[in-house]
Amino acid sequence: MNPLIELTDVAKTFGQGADAVHAFGPVDLTIDDGDFISFLGPSGCGKSTLMLMVAGLLERTSGQIVLGGQPVDGPRTDIGIMFQDNTLVPWRTVRGNIELQLEMRGIDPTSAADRITVLLQSVHLQDFADRFPYELSGGMQQRAAFCQAMVHDPQIMLLDEPLGKLDAMTREQIRTDLQTLWMQQKPTVIFVTHSIEEAVQLSSRVAIITPRPGRVEKIIPIDLPFPRDFEVKNSPEFASYVRDIQEIFRGYGVI
């Protein structure tokens, strides 16, 4: 495994002088090709900030980020990003929204028609391709947004609490789909979340982020077989990972 993403001494400070808020870092982190790493931490710890810096959408105050052998200065176009509030536009259908990602990159969407159909099938949206986002439930919207973030076949996916606004049952369903897709296509995923169970279920590694100023306190490899189905989730090993992480956050006084 080659390191695909390398962070060296990355830190972020908002504001200047006496009003400066030290939001994040310094952080050193290496993420391997095909890794599914979760940034797990309480609200406001800067995990989203770190993700945006990796994407080149937010300037870092100091440090180096190298992504696929190239240093990050400015927005990177070779990644797929998804946010808690999705980036579906209301004037386009589900398919149109997925095509938007390609049109913005100057790619003719008709050349990717088959790929879009396959993507929609993989998240069970094939019958909703011509529906508008407002005709879909919150969970279906996030599935569509996931297709939008994947259609240009990025090697790296950055997911910022994509399931944050969904109900518990929908979250379960989409987690399963997400895992299946990751196992099939093996992109490198950075998954930002504050749900311990979600992190343990999906990740090959969980990066524990401390309350502000955020630092990567610990990286816990989750040594459980994929797919992490119902059986795995109810195993004592799974429970012990969850408990260990809960202990860490209890130590911070977060929970």
């Binding site: 959408l57 990177r76 946010f83 999705n86 049109e103 913005m104 990159r105 100057g106």
Partner: peptide, 23 residues
Amino acid sequence: ELTRFCRSTGAGPVLSFIKVRLP
């Protein structure tokens, strides 16, 4: 989110305007 989406696609200001900002 949409601002970041536009930037992450690498689209120029004119394309971003026509496809996203104007509508």
